[in-house]
Design a protein around this nucleic acid. Structure first.
Lengths: 345, 345
DNA sequence: ACGCTTTCCGGAAACGTTTTAGTATGGCAA
DNA sequence: TTGCCATACTAAAACGTTTCCGGAAAGCGT
């Protein structure tokens, strides 16, 4: 006989009243409520989550599904840790807890999510690293679990998602390079099955065409999103017959590898080749020459994610006016020295 | 009337039998068990976690508490994501789920953990970033929650922990430098309240004395664990009257900043100054000259953590022979060019 | 035919909480 | 007085599951 029953007996009060007092229900005398709260504090009572979840059918837990694949671990640069800060700050206001669910890399993400959903351990989900077609989205829609996807997708009809402004970034980078007289602009990107790779390269193509520059597939260098990938991209670039005068990197870390390869070839970024990176990360600042890239606030993104999610949850929607179902998250240009190389007179 | 009851009715069988069939209890006919499993699969039934937790008093969830402070986000280099891979691989064998609990950075970690424990949402805990004295440990001991700490601590009497072999690393680094004739060896470390800073510097001191070299406090440069810290360490070092000929960096990332400062001063690491870093991280390989440092497998550490934890849990201990309660996790030297500078004839 | 064990299953209690429905009390108006 | 409403409480049901207990049926030896 532990838990609320003990607390009730200690106060010589029924457990129903204790429960209502703790949950801030109106029909309880203010005097008694004070006594209850005091006693709970004193005895260190906190409601058992299983009991309350069972009764209410709600767990007060928001799931954040991430993958812990080898690639993610090496490249994502604490992206999630940064985002969780913002998530927490919003969720904790509503006494919601954030549950990071790292999908085992030997398990199918879809199956993993299915099990989690069926067990009813979360009230809502945030999924990340969405694929072009993603079963998980259909699953969540069917199960009627509120969710928001970090990354756009074509699955599941019209669902809520937030994604980075790849189009804007690509356009900005291309515009900037073209303004400096560049016509042969390479791009280093992951393969097309990664959403990012597809969207980014497509935006790059459109931007080029807007400037009347023909899209040349040989300038699209498909490499891993890593320093090694950057090194390899540099290598591939040097082997082209007609060498590009500028290159856009989808992953910031590629810059380290690219610089190294250029260094080996006696090519100095910023002087002989214009380089623009994508997402800023702290250590990029230490590159020489400093990298022109794009900045975003991970924390603010987390806040936006949380608020968007809450807007889709009936119990919380009142506080969060339903904005757009789909949000494009802007990034800000951080000018550096790496794209100083200009072909203009 | 959902859940197991519905399943039972569909099979025209009592719910007790269904439950026993699903949970692999012996006293159920193999024929019926097959029927039950088939029906469960077909109807997509998965036991509600709240119900089962409430009844069993166990949640099948292992909590991993991490901090998402700004500093952690920028410096920890996906340490946790790497470790979770190993954790998962062990835990999933026992149908245990891993719950990452990122402590909001505006909340006291101790209070946060206390609430989580009181709500009975986890069966066991892994805590990280332990302090020299850490309230959380006393809390877990008192609450009788099985746990293992990543990082040693003096709190809570004798509890289970795993920590990196700072002593071994410090000794190896000092030995190596001394063998090359260095006598004035600096060290860049965080402050003493960080466990790591205290232990590492202490081991460094002992190693020096073992070689008959007097410990010189002015050679201990206290800086942030970041590239900026490395830059600053280089700066401080240059201001010393009697300049060191070698330096040990506690954080790998410091090397980037240090190199930059040395570069500015016209000092070439590996030729004019011997540098040894600590924990290897992938992008360190791209430094020039390549950094001598120490390697560990994050995944294996995760496996060790999980197995150690399970050994302390009565329900699982049988499979995991109780080894040492405290483990020192070894690191392996990765020779590079940065400490090539030798004072020997 | 009888008793005994084994095998399998059904009924019901229990886990800790929230919430609904009902009840006692007192104040107030008629 | 009676009736009525508001207040603050109690009692009990319900959430979905596991597990204990008992019992029916079947097998087996005597």
């Amino acid at each position: 006989m532990k838990g609320i029953r003990q607390l009730a007996k200690h106060l010589d009060i029924s457990i129903g009243t204790v429960s209502r007092a703790l949950n801030g229900r109106p029909d309880v005398n203010e005097e008694t409520r004070k006594r209850v709260l005091a006693a709970a504090e004193e005895l260190g009572y906190v409601a058992n989550q299983s009991g309350r979840s069972l009764r209410q059918g709600t767990t007060n837990v928001i799931g954040l599904m991430i993958e812990s694949s080898k690639e993610t671990v090496e490249n994502s640069d604490n992206f999630f840790l940064g985002v969780t800060g913002g998530l927490q700050s919003v969720l904790s206001r509503h006494k919601l807890d954030l549950l990071m669910l790292p999908c085992p890399n030997d398990e199918d993400p879809h199956e993993y999510l299915k099990r989690m959903v069926a067990r009813r351990v979360v009230d809502a989900m945030i999924i990340s690293a969405t694929q072009r077609v993603d079963q998980r989205i259909d699953l969540l829609v069917k199960a009627k679990i509120p969710f928001v996807a970090l990354g756009r997708s074509t699955s599941g009809g019209s669902h809520t998602w937030i994604d980075l402004d790849f189009e804007g970034v690509a356009a900005c980078a291309v515009d900037r390079l073209v303004a400096k007289g560049h016509r042969r602009i390479a791009i280093a990107a992951p393969s097309n099955d990664i959403n990012l790779g597809y969207i980014f390269v497509d935006a790059y193509r459109q931007s080029l065409e807007r400037h009347g520059i023909a899209y040349d597939p040989s300038l699209v260098i498909r490499v891993k999103s890593s320093e090694q990938g950057g090194y390899q991209a540099g290598h591939e670039m040097l082997r082209l017959d007609s060498k590009p005068t500028a290159i856009i990197l989808i992953y910031e870390l590629m810059a380290i590898g690219l610089y190294r390869r250029m260094n080996e070839a006696g090519i100095i970024p910023g002087r002989d080749l214009a380089v623009i990176g994508f997402r800023e990360e702290p250590r990029g600042k230490f590159l020489q020459p400093s990298l022109t890239c794009f900045r975003m606030s991970l924390r603010d993104l987390g806040v936006e994610l949380a608020e968007t999610l809450l807007a889709t949850m009936p119990a919380y929607a009142e506080h969060y006016p339903k904005g757009a179902r789909n949000t494009i998250w802007p990034l800000e240009l951080v000018p550096g020295e790496s794209d100083a190389f200009s072909l203009n007179a």
